[in-house]
Design a protein around this nucleic acid. Structure first.
Lengths: 344, 344
DNA sequence: CTTGGCACTCGCATCGTGAGAGTGCCAGCG
DNA sequence: CGCTGGCACTCTCACGATGCGAGTGCCAAG
C-alpha cells in the first residue's frame, strides 16, 4: 500500500518519457532510478497506476506512457519548479532591457521564450481594459477627418479615424477639437479604460448641441477600441519547433498550427489566468483544452503586466510530453522580468 | 525539331504534376492531353527536356517531375495569368472594405490571401522610407520624458520615448515642446520620410543653444525609426497549410517554418519588387531563393501601396509544385484592391 | 508485501517476392 | 527526317511471412 512509492514511480515514468520519448518499461526504470525494490514490484505498481488511469500502455508489449491525468498529477504534486541559475536570470533580464518600444518588448519576449524552451512561444499584447489611459491625442487630418490616438500606460497605442460632419480646418473647428481634447484628457488621463469610458458618458452634454455629434464620435472610438478587445493581438514564435519534434506529436502538427492561427483559442487560455495562484504559472494539458486540435499539446502560461495589475498573458506550447519543470521556471522568470521592465 | 510541341509537353507535365502531385509518365500524358502524336514520340521529347534540365526523373521507372528551371520556363512563357471572375473580385473588395484601421487592413489581407490560395500568406507592413509624413506629435509624459509619435500617410504609427535633460512640465518646457512641434511639422508634413529627415538637419540651429539637445533628440528618433527599417514588420497566415500539404514538400517543413520566422529573409524577397514589371507579379522558385530552407518552396509576390508609390510587398509561399496561374492572379488582385483601399 | 522466474503476447524490423509503371531503344513507315 | 508500335529491361512499392526482443502478467515462495 505504499502510496508514496507509486507516486515516485509515476514521477520517474514522466521524467524518463520526457527524456527519451519512448514508452518506459519496468526494467529500464529500476536501472535508472534507485527505488529500493525490484522490477517485479515496480510492475505491480505500474499495474495499479494504469488502473487509476494515470499511465497507459500503447500496446501489450510496450512500456507505459503517462496519460493526461498522469501529467496533471505530476505537475500538481510531483514536480518542483526548477530554480534558474543566476546566469540565466541575468541573461533574460539583459536581453529584455535592450528593447526600445512596446512592439520590441513583445517581440523580444516571444523570441526569448521560444529559444529558451525550444517550444512555441505565445505572447499577448497588453490588454486595454486592464490598463489605464496615459494620453489621448486628436489630430486633424483633412478638412473633415480626425485621427484619435489612444495611448495606454503600457505603451500600447491604438488609433482610429473618424469623419466629422462639419469642417475642422477653420477657426471654429480647430477650437472645438482643442476643447474636446482637453476635456477628454481631464476626465480620462490616468484612469483605467473602462473607468474613463464610464466617466465620459456625460461629456457630450457639456457641449453645444451642434457639436455633440463630434464628441460622441470621439468617445465612440474609445469604446470601439475597448470592444475590439476580443480581437486582442497575439504574437507567436518558434513554430518551427513543432516540426522539429517531428512525429513527436501524437497526430500531425496541422491541427496545432490551425489552433495557433485562431488567436481566439489562445486568448481563452490567457483569459483564465489569475495572479499569484501558487507559483503564478498555469498549465493546461492535452484534452483539458477546449480546442480539439490541442488535444496532444500542453500550454504553460503566466500573466504579466504593470505593477499589481496583470494585463496580459504569455506562455509556451508544446507536446504533452514536455519538460514541465523547466518550462514553468522559464515562463515564470520571463513573466517576472517583462513585468519589471514594463513598470519603467 | 518541333520546339513548340516540346514546350507544350512541358506545360502539360507541369499542369498534371500540380494536379496529381505524382510523377507523370508518357502514357498518362497522351491520354489526358490531345497532342497529335503517340506516347513514344512524347517520350523522345521528354528525353530532350530532361537533357535540357527542365524535367527530372526521381528514379528510372518513375515518371518525370519538373525541375526549378522547368517551373521557371512555365511561369515565364507557358502560363497565362488566369483571369478572376467578377464574383471573386467583388468578394475580395468587399472583405477588405470592412477594415477599420491599418492593422486590420494588413490582418484581413493576409488572411484573405491564405484562404484564397490555400498557401502561406505573407504581408509586409507599409514601409516608412517609401511613405510620407502625415503628422508628428510630441506628448509630454513625465517631467522629463517626451513621447514622439510619427504617423505615415499609410496610417502606420511609430512611437518612441526620449528623455530630456531639463524639465518639460514648467511653462518654459511646455512652450519649447510646442515650438519644436510646430517647426518640425512645418518642415516635415507631407514630405517623404527621407526627405523630411534631410530638411530637418538644420533645425537645431534655429533654437537657443540650451534647447538644441532636445531638438536633436527628437530628430534622432525620426532617424532611428527610419534606420530600424531592417526590422520591418511582417505578418503571416496560413502556416497550417504547410502541414496540410503533408509530405508534399520535398523535405520536411521545419526549415520552411524556420525561414518564415526569420523575417529578414522574407523582406529580402520583397526588397526586389519593382512596379509594373510585366504583370506586376514576381515569382521566385526553389533554389533561386538565397535561403536554403526555401529550396523546396516558391514565392509569388507583388508590391502594393498608395498611389503611384509602392510601399510594401505581399505574397504567398508554397511548394514549388504550386498552381502558379491561380496564385499569380490572386496575388495580383489582392495587391490591387489593397492599394485601392489605402488610397482613401 | 516483495521477489525471482517463466510463459506469453505483440509490435517492429527485416527480408523476399511479385506486380506494375515507365523507360530506352530499335526497326519500320510515311 | 521524324513518327510509331513493340519489346525487353529496370526499379520502386506494396504485400506478406518470419523472427527477435522488450515487456508484461501471474504465481509460488520468502
Amino acid at each position: 500500500m505504499s502510496d508514496e512509492r507509486r507516486l515516485a514511480v509515476l514521477r520517474a515514468i514522466v521524467q524518463d518519457y520526457v527524456r527519451t520519448s519512448e514508452p518506459v518499461g519496468s526494467k529500464s526504470l529500476v536501472e535508472r532510478h534507485h527505488f529500493g525494490v525490484s522490477a517485479a514490484t515496480v510492475r505491480n505498481d505500474m499495474a495499479i497506476l494504469e488502473e487509476e488511469g494515470l499511465i497507459h500502455a500503447p500496446h501489450t508489449s510496450a512500456g507505459r506512457v503517462p496519460t493526461d491525468a498522469g501529467y496533471r498529477l505530476f505537475v500538481d504534486r510531483l514536480s518542483a519548479v526548477k530554480p534558474m541559475s543566476g546566469a540565466e536570470r541575468a541573461a533574460i533580464s539583459r536581453f529584455l532591457q535592450g528593447a526600445v518600444d512596446l512592439d520590441d518588448v513583445v517581440d523580444r519576449t516571444v523570441r526569448l521564450l521560444a529559444s529558451l524552451t525550444h517550444q512555441v512561444a505565445v505572447v499577448q499584447y497588453p490588454s486595454l481594459t486592464r490598463s489605464s489611459v496615459r494620453h489621448i491625442e486628436l489630430v486633424p487630418m483633412a478638412r473633415d477627418r480626425l485621427m484619435v490616438i489612444l495611448i495606454a500606460n503600457t505603451g500600447r497605442i491604438e488609433q482610429r479615424i473618424v469623419e466629422a460632419r462639419g469642417r475642422l480646418d477653420d477657426e471654429a473647428g480647430t477650437a472645438l477639437v482643442a476643447r474636446i481634447r482637453s476635456e477628454v484628457l481631464a476626465e480620462a488621463a490616468g484612469r483605467s479604460f473602462p473607468e474613463a469610458s464610464a466617466r465620459l458618458q456625460s461629456l457630450p452634454e457639456r457641449f453645444e448641441p451642434a457639436d455633440r455629434d463630434l464628441v460622441r464620435l470621439v468617445l465612440r472610438t474609445l469604446d470601439d477600441a475597448l470592444a475590439e478587445e476580443r480581437e486582442e493581438r497575439v504574437v507567436l514564435a518558434g513554430t518551427s519547433n513543432l516540426a522539429r519534434f517531428g512525429s513527436d506529436f501524437p497526430l500531425t502538427i496541422a491541427p496545432v498550427l490551425e489552433a495557433l492561427e485562431e488567436h481566439v483559442v489562445l486568448l481563452k487560455l490567457f483569459g483564465r489566468l489569475r495572479p499569484g495562484q501558487g507559483t503564478g504559472v498555469a498549465v493546461t494539458i492535452g484534452h483539458e483544452h477546449e480546442h480539439e486540435g490541442l488535444a496532444g499539446a500542453s500550454v504553460v502560461s503566466a500573466a504579466y503586466g504593470t505593477g499589481s495589475e496583470l494585463v496580459a498573458g504569455l506562455g509556451v506550447l508544446g507536446p504533452t510530453r514536455m519538460d514541465y519543470p523547466t518550462a514553468m521556471a522559464t515562463v515564470r522568470a520571463v513573466a517576472h522580468y517583462v513585468s519589471e521592465l514594463l513598470e519603467s
